[in-house]
Structure formats: C-alpha cells, structure tokens
Design a protein around this nucleic acid. Sequence first.
DNA 1: ATGGTAGTAAAACTA
Length: 269
Amino acid sequence: MRLRQFLFHRLTGLKVATWNVNSIKVRLPLLLNWLDEAKPDIVCLQEIKCLAADFPLMELRGHGYRAEIVGQKSYNGVALLTKEPARDVIAALPGDDGGDSQARYVEATVGDVRVASLYLPNGNPVDSDKFPYKLAWLARLRAHAAELLKSERPFVLAGDYNVIPEPEDVYDPLAWRDDALFRAETRRAFRGLVNLGLTDAFRALHAEPHRDSFWDYQAGRWQRDEGIRIDHLLLSPQAADRLAAAGIDKAPRGKDKASDHTPVWCELN
DNA sequence: ATGGTAGTAAAACTA
C-alpha cells in the first residue's frame, strides 16, 4: 500500500492545502464539497472552534480523510486531514508558551513530508498584550523552523499566518499600515522566518499582485474584492525543489455560508 | 464610518 501511494504521488504530486474554516461545524458541508472537488492529500485546517471530541471524524472518514486534531472550546483549534496515516504528531509549537495553552499548532509526518497546520495569533489591538504575544509566537516559530531545517528533509509550514507579507498583498496598504497584520515589526519577523531559507509556495509561482486569501465579512469586502493574502505555505528547500504548482481557490469564498478565508494549496512532485 | 458581519454561546469576546 505504501509503495502504491509512493508511485501514485510520483505521478500526480502531493497536494497540500490550508484553509481557515472559521468553525468546522458550520463549514462542514462546504468543506466536504471542496475535498471531493480539489482532492488534496493533506489539508491544514484552522479555527475549527471545537474540542477534539466534537470534531466530525465520521463524516470526514466517509470522504477518505483521517484527522489529527488540536481542539479548544469556542476559539482557535487546528487540524490535519490526511489520506495516509500521520506519524510522530506534536500538538503544540515547541518553546515557552508563557503559560498559555491556545490550540494553534499541530505537526506530523505524512508520507515523506513533515507538515504543520498553524494559526498564528492575530495580534490586534497592537497596544494590547496580544501584539507582543503574536511577535513572541513568530519568534518561537522561527526557532522551531531553524530546528526542522537541520533535518534537511522536506517540510511544509501551512496555515493562517495573520501576516500580510508585502504591499501587493493588501488592497489598501496605507490603511493597514498600523494593523497587527501589516505592521513593520510583523513583516520583519515574517521575513526573518522566510529568510532562514523557506519558500512562499504561492508567491514563488505567481508574481501577480492582489491574489488574496481572506475577505472580511464586514463592510462588503468580498463584494468589493478588497482582500488580503495572509494564508501561506512555507516550504523547506527540500520541499521547494519539488514544487510543481500552487494556487488559491477563490470559489469557496463566494458560496453560501462561506468562511472569510479561502483555500490555498501547493503540489509537490 | 470607533461602523460593518459572522461564530460561539448565551453576554461579550474574537476576528
């Protein structure tokens, strides 16, 4: 079976996606439809907003997916959906959590790739303790990525980074200048992570500006197509060498009962 | 526009 999966991926590529679903309970029908259409091998979910015990395992099993879940009541919560079993799962980002235990990170090995689903803190308002928490979380992620890089193996850090990397990733850079998602400190910390040697899978293959992954429910942002690109898949050099395709599936954002985020994906040979 | 909308969960809190 493993050999068959290996040969299968040699032909079709391994498709890894990330999607902040903003409640797995509300989004389940949309998610199942998208899984059947897009057929990803691995899906990194964020903001499932439920305990692991309340995750709809049976429904996903019916569509061919297993799940590794790090849940929390009401807020946050991440999961990895996989067709193959996940191995060596860790349920939190290593490093000092400051006594906090928000469900924002799950990482596992699937096939020959290490994959993480992460939900980086939003950080607003910037004059609250939420902003330093975000920057500390980014620093911990960078330290952990540096550790992972030592393995010289393929890995994908995928999720809702709550970071707008560049001005072309936001409809109004000036209006967002002081927001926690676009502040100089945030962008600098994100560059520090990328500059370890990681590759932004979507941006590596798509130079065009304004390819967004999030549109706020408020103020008609979707109708005006005023979005931001904050969901990313960062690849290790060994994964980037295998990068064959990447995309943002805009359609799910336009459906009834949509999440405010839409799926972002990449394919590795 | 210090608003707007959505989700959780039962009044705010988060985004």
